[in-house]
Design a protein around this nucleic acid. Structure first.
Lengths: 137, 137
DNA sequence: CTAACATAAATGCATGCGCATGCATTATTT
DNA sequence: AAATAATGCATGCGCATGCATTTATGTTAG
């Protein structure tokens, strides 16, 4: 077992950590809101925009999903019982479709973000949190 | 935007980092060996065992996949052109199934680990690597 | 103005995953 | 020994995803 392969094991442990937290968040969102993590992120990004709407193609880069995955994500959110997101298109460019965070969506995403934050706090040690911040650059 | 929600954004950045590296590794493995990341991890864990074989239920905990996902992962590896893994069962407990790393599998996993390590080295900065190690505890 | 090309999103298809379930085997209880 | 429960794995099903293709619209070169 030579030196280099240590890096792989470091990576594997790192991935396990990531997976553990991801599952915590996903489980919480699924149980309480019937939302997946990607859907939550999606609503977060929309909410950060002052107009509460963005073109699908813009969101694609932010959220790191394929174009088709994003299109279907919006479809799911349109069907969701909270009706948090709607599609809209404008005459300026009829190719584009905007995802719009509805008033209901805006109300809920703020609440959800606070709760997700709590789940994070509970899932992470102080040490974890300070380690995490090293990557946030 | 209050303080707590900063933690979410830290987490999002962290996840993006994880995703970026994961894609690098997966892309490499897929292109060169027609293997997915889980399949690679699976072979790694098998290889670390001196007998080069483990029960599926043991691997389940190591690799963090569901039981069904694991069962199908082994099926895929049995079909793989390198024939790296076989199933075996013994009289001691006929319910159990062992995944066995074949000689071909053993030969290749060592080679692949070295290459994956190189991909990791190329994908990560020095700083990334030292940050990673903080989680490996 | 038209023909070619470019861009944005939707859709068909394949893959990998988890959940729920079923089958075979083993362990435990009566 | 028979009945019941637990264990280990395989399989049906549905979901989220990516790739390739299609459809609609916009842009540009001639």
């Amino acid at each position: 077992m030579n030196q280099p392969q240590q890096l792989i094991h470091t990576w594997v442990n790192f991935s396990k950590f990531h997976k553990r937290i991801t599952h915590s968040l996903d489980y919480f969102l699924q149980q309480k809101y019937h939302l997946g993590l990607s859907e939550f992120y999606f609503m977060m990004f929309l909410n950060e925009n002052s107009e509460k709407q963005l073109r699908l193609s813009q969101l694609q880069n932010m959220i790191g999903l394929s174009q088709s995955a994003l299109s279907r994500l919006v479809s799911r959110l349109e069907q969701h019982h909270l009706k948090p997101v709607e599609r809209a298109s404008y005459a300026e460019d009829k190719r584009s479709v905007y995802a719009v965070l509805t008033p209901s969506g805006q109300k809920h995403i703020n609440e959800i973000m606070n709760e997700v934050n709590n789940v994070l706090q509970q899932s992470l040690s102080e040490k974890d949190i300070s380690n995490l911040k090293l990557f946030a650059e």
